[in-house]
Design a protein around this nucleic acid. Structure first.
Lengths: 242, 242
DNA sequence: GTCTATATCTAGATAGAC
DNA sequence: GTCTATCTAGATATAGAC
């Protein structure tokens, strides 16, 4: 398998506690060190170059020369670290999707951060707000990576694509679980749980497409706005004042 | 300019009343005749082939041979009708974006279909529901075209890109107008109108990315669901029942 | 307007010196 | 592990016959 080259990508899943705390993620990571765990250095620089290039121009329009150039290397050097251009995309996708799953796992759990939740999933709104807020923040903060992760999937080979789809399903299930819990407890009033789950995922993901650091809102602000909008989506509206 | 080749694309803006009635759009159009006005026949077939191919594989990964093949022609024949591959994308984008503007213009107007609205923009919720419903329906029904229209913009040349961005701004302004009217009349309770406008646009647009005709919902059902979700987004939530 | 044939270029990937 | 040089394939676009 292409994924078992010896100089390969560390997921970050086990790479120490420097960037995945309970309060979300990205707050104290620099603009794009999603690949901090990758060694050797050249392999990481190539990955970062690939992310930039793929985000700017798309996978197919990006040349290996371009990627190598951004990493300060010759075109041939790329192939020491990655078998193909597609393998670069796969590593980016995998790390990004694993991060998504982790963010949502963290946010969706019932034993909230420091809170003394009674136990029976009473706090679905808190979990939902936390999930949307940190998921959106990640897509804005790491919009370059996220753009590649979310919009270049079709360039993966079949095997890699299947693996990524599995991770996406896990993310969706995590979010749906929160909506189901809230519906069961009466905190939410949702007409179509599966459909609403999809809509919320879609809303969060699409942040990566339009977000710009030059825009008028910070990732934090967008996260807060979106959390509020989503909370309204799952809550029965008040009768319109006349 | 590339856009003035003699055998070129009719917008559909003036092409008769066969598919843009007051009750939305797409209901009685076949799966993809967004380009019904294009003549000669070969030019239209090429456009349809390009839409399919771009949607499946992306602009850069699509070869002119592929497009020509789908249209039942040799690679060279393409260049009789279009100067470059990019021009095909431009025509697809332009027609699609003009359709979006038209759908939103139609839906956002204050003199609703047959209704006797008093006159002072009392019916913002109706306008919003109508807008979201038909905009979403278009993105689902024509998801192949919409995918190209929404996700391949970066492959346009600078001049064409600028033109398309102008159309996108018009769409956004149409939607924002509805939210502003509803906020002014007290029908809506929106914290951040610009941000909410963006979120709603984003939600609708992203339907094109994930929609599949094999999925469990029809375009109509998704449109209805989304209209409800968006209406909740702009309405003050009822206090949670305890 | 369409075809066959082809010019020209550029991409991904490899060979082999250092 | 990195470089220079290069192989090979396939892309866009054009030429010229029909």
């Amino acid at each position: 398998m292409a994924s078992e080259t010896e100089s390969q990508v560390a997921t970050g899943e086990n790479s120490g506690g420097d960037d995945g705390g309970a309060d979300g993620d990205g707050a104290f990571t620099t603009p794009d060190d999603s690949f901090g765990g990758v060694t050797p250095d050249a392999a990481r620089r190539l990955l970062l170059g690939a992310v930039e290039a793929f985000a700017e121009r798309g996978f197919h329009a990006t040349t290996t020369r371009d990627i190598a150039g951004r990493a300060g290397m010759s075109p041939a050097a790329l192939y020491i670290h990655y078998k193909t251009k597609e393998e670069l995309l796969y590593q980016i996708s995998r790390v990004g999707h694993e991060r998504s799953v982790r963010i949502l796992t963290e946010a969706a759990r019932t034993d909230g951060e420091g809170g003394d939740s009674g136990g029976d999933g009473e706090d679905a709104p808190v979990r939902l707000v936390r999930a949307v807020r940190s998921f959106v923040r990640w897509h804005a903060e790491h919009h370059t990576t996220a753009r590649v992760v979310q919009y270049e999937l079709s360039a993966l080979n079949e095997e890699h694509y299947a693996e990524i789809v599995g991770l996406r399903r896990r993310s969706e299930e995590l979010l749906r679980g929160v909506l189901e819990d809230g519906e069961a407890s009466g905190e939410f009033a949702i007409a179509d749980i599966r459909g609403t789950t999809l809509a919320v995922m879609s809303l969060c993901i699409d942040v990566a497409r339009w977000f710009s650091p030059q825009g008028r809102r910070t990732p934090e602000e967008i996260g807060a706005l979106y959390a509020d909008l989503v909370l309204r989506m799952v809550t029965a509206p008040a009768p319109a004042p006349r």
